[in-house]
C-alpha cells in the first residue's frame, strides 16, 4: 500500500491505496464520495467523469496514484456552498435532463468542462462533446437542452 494525497473539491485528502486502485475507487471507497458513478468500468460510458487539473477524465480509467498531488473535482463539488444546486445542476433539473439519473454526474461534469472552454457551444458541439458520455435512457435531447440553458444562465 502507498499513501496518496490530493485535493478533492478544494479539500486536502489522503489515503492508502494499491497500485491498481482506480481513481473512481479511491473517491467512492476511501472518501465515500459516491456521486461519481461507475457504469461500465470499460471506459465507454462516462458516468465516472471527474475533472483532474480542470480536465475531464474517466476516473475508472485513471490510477489513483496518477492523481497524487493533483486537483480533483467531482459532482459533489458542483453544488453551491449552501448545498443548493449549482447552475448546471439546476438547468438539468429544470429541463428534465435526467431520467434514471445514473449517468447524470458524468453528464454534469462533462457539461462543466465544455462550458469552461466554450461558453456558448452550438448543439452540434455539445453533442460531439458528449461522445464519451452514454445515457442508457437515451435522454440526450433534454441533456443537450439543459446544457444550452446552463450556457445561457452562465453568460
Amino acid at each position: 500500500m502507498t499513501n496518496v494525497s490530493m485535493t478533492v473539491n478544494g479539500k486536502a485528502v489522503s489515503g492508502e491505496v494499491e497500485g491498481r486502485t482506480l481513481l473512481s475507487d479511491f473517491l467512492r471507497e476511501n472518501l465515500h464520495l459516491t456521486g461519481t458513478h461507475v457504469g461500465c468500468d470499460t471506459s465507454q460510458c462516462g458516468a465516472c467523469t471527474v475533472h483532474v487539473a480542470g480536465k475531464m477524465v474517466k476516473s475508472c480509467t485513471m490510477l489513483a496514484l496518477e492523481a497524487d498531488g493533483g486537483d480533483v473535482s467531482t459532482i459533489e463539488g458542483m453544488a453551491n456552498e449552501d448545498g443548493s444546486l449549482g447552475v448546471i445542476q439546476a438547468a438539468f433539473q429544470e429541463h428534465h435532463g435526467l431520467q434514471c439519473g445514473f449517468c447524470t454526474p458524468g453528464m454534469v461534469m462533462a457539461a462543466s468542462a465544455l462550458l469552461a472552454e466554450n461558453s456558448s457551444p452550438s448543439e452540434a458541439e455539445i453533442r460531439h462533446h458528449l461522445d464519451g458520455n452514454i445515457c442508457r435512457c437515451t435522454g440526450y435531447h433534454n441533456i443537450v437542452k439543459s446544457i444550452q440553458a446552463a450556457a445561457s444562465a452562465l453568460s
Binding site: 471506459s43 467523469t49 480536465k55 475531464m56 477524465v57 474517466k58 480509467t61 462533462a110 461522445d131 464519451g132
Partner: peptide
C-alpha cells in the same frame, strides 16, 4: 480520437 475524456489522458 475517442472522446474528450480519453483525449485528456
Amino acid at each position: 480520437i475517442g472522446d474528450p475524456a480519453v483525449r485528456n489522458r
